[in-house]
Design a protein around this nucleic acid. Sequence first.
DNA 1: TCGTTATCCTAGTGATCGATACAAAATTCT
DNA 2: AGAATTTTGTATCGATCACTAGGATAACGA
Lengths: 204, 204
Amino acid sequence: MKVKEGRSHRKSGRPLSFDRNERLRKAMLLFWAHGYEATSLSDLTHEMAITPPSLYHSYGDKKSLFLESLELYLSGPETSDTIIANAETAKQAAFRLLEVSAIYFTGLDTPKGCMLATSAISCSQSQMDVAKVLAFKRLEIEKNLKMKIADGRRCGEFQSEVDEDALAGLIMSVIQGLSTLARDGAAREKLLRIVKTAMNAWPP
Amino acid sequence: MKVKEGRSHRKSGRPLSFDRNERLRKAMLLFWAHGYEATSLSDLTHEMAITPPSLYHSYGDKKSLFLESLELYLSGPETSDTIIANAETAKQAAFRLLEVSAIYFTGLDTPKGCMLATSAISCSQSQMDVAKVLAFKRLEIEKNLKMKIADGRRCGEFQSEVDEDALAGLIMSVIQGLSTLARDGAAREKLLRIVKTAMNAWPP
DNA sequence: TCGTTATCCTAGTGATCGATACAAAATTCT
DNA sequence: AGAATTTTGTATCGATCACTAGGATAACGA
């Protein structure tokens, strides 16, 4: 049985002259730095060192290239899903999410901040569908964290009553906020101190 | 002695056919909803119901119209400066900042979220100067809050040692995060519960 | 070697971007 | 009234936007 690899059937014909994944990463870095709408095709083709027809043939249009870049970003060094799933307690899940965010948002050879938070937080009416995709991804993370907190509550993780909704929302808020602070130039060390301070809000 | 009123010297000539401040507010609402770059001149002239030459004559170019809209936004129902200055304690200042944000970001007849946080968080290289203005305004608020915390520490507001930098950064992070949650559809009541939860991180 | 298939680059498409030249219209000053 | 001043709408500017038609080029299988 043949298995499709990406978009290319690769039965015969002229082979791709570039590494598709490597150039996708370059696109991701541009979208990460400047957002969806502010990154032009001319920016992309210049940075990826391919011509517009090659880009369209290999990745589809600008929107699908962005969405694929987003998947690459979200697969990151660690996904939020695995962080939450592997954590022993809800508190550990929250702490790890914050910690990994603080580190991921202040990488030395990547743009500052969070691509999921910044790349289409405001956009024109015509591109609202892209913004909705990002919003959905954010809400999914929040939902997962909320369920982890509910699990923890059932397992006796908390001494007192807990507002799962507000607690998950707070962690998400801090994550989004860390992204902006990172954009504004805050150092990784500062973000990690903020994370530590934020965890003081966690109920006993 | 004559005093200039805005941009118009009003000595003679044809008078303005529209209310400059009222139309400025319409521009602000557009920038608030869609951000600086994603709001086009055609969007602006259509919503403000004036022609491009009138816009340029009354407000200057797009950038200066945005900056004036931003000032109108920041003057809001209450400025962060007055909130911080009028608070009796640093803790009250932080709580009020969060509370006012939660309410301001979920207005019924305004766009969701924070214009300062969303209108140019990611932009093209050519418009980076506008993004810098917003970053500067955000950092100013953080600086003011940090000084308020330092004042509180000197006045014996805290029982233990306090990381002013991290504490001010945390409050700012939550504010920026609330903006994104509001954009994603969170209700005001939820944001207020998040605020309450966040304040649990405040040191005794 | 030759046909098939796939990718390559050149050179554009129409649409929209922010911004303006120009002169008619509307007001005040003399 | 007539000159001076300011705002008006029409009609457009060059630049850039996302995108693509069309043919040359380079690999494959037979």
